[in-house]
């Protein structure tokens, strides 16, 4: 048998982002809400794959960033917002990974099972809800990250390109 050796260049997984000051969350909320509405509008069929878990509360923890994300993928009451870590909301399921790995997942460039095997992705809570969310997002053609970046025109695409390059340099998954 052959095995892989893992290099974990940055324990927080946030890379250069960890040097940035935490953004005021109130500035983030309208951006996140707009991103969620955009993705939902472009890909309405993804909600079908969520089945009964479309009303589940997911906390997504981009390790190393000063906030967590709360996602309720309910097309009737879509919630996607940042919450301070000290006031993390209760959730049905929690998904934690470094920012670049999470970005690669929504970019369609990384495999969730592989990240789980390598322990770069942690899942707790309702596993079935997480599996549904994973499968729903993976059935979205193209890249959710590009859809989100496209909202902000050329600057958004430039930021996404820079983040991708940073992820590649990090040797992310």
């Amino acid at each position: 048998m052959t095995e892989i050796a893992h290099g974990k260049p940055d324990a927080t997984g946030a890379g250069p982002l960890r040097f940035l000051p935490p953004p005021p969350l109130f500035l983030l909320q309208p951006i996140l809400a707009r991103v969620a509405r955009r993705v939902a509008g472009l890909h309405p069929s993804l909600f079908d794959r969520l089945g009964p878990h479309r009303t589940a509360c997911f906390v997504i923890d981009p390790r190393g960033l000063p906030f967590v994300l709360l996602l309720v993928p309910d097309p009737e009451n879509l919630v996607f917002r940042a919450e301070p870590r000290r006031r993390e909301p209760q959730s049905d399921a929690r998904i934690a990974g470094n920012f670049f790995d999470l970005l690669a997942l929504v970019d369609g460039n990384s495999d969730g099972d592989a990240l789980f095997f390598s322990r770069d992705l942690d899942i707790t809570g309702n596993t079935e809800a997480v599996v549904c969310l994973r499968n729903a997002l993976d059935d979205v053609e193209g890249s959710i990250a590009e859809d989100a970046a496209g909202l902000f025109g050329a600057p958004g695409r430039a930021i996404l390109a820079a983040l991708r390059r940073a992820g590649d340099r990090r040797g992310g998954s």
Partner: peptide, 11 residues
């Protein structure tokens, strides 16, 4: 492809 394998091992 070992990064995609279960347990990061292949046989």
């Amino acid at each position: 492809l070992v990064a995609l394998t279960e347990g990061q091992k292949q046989t």
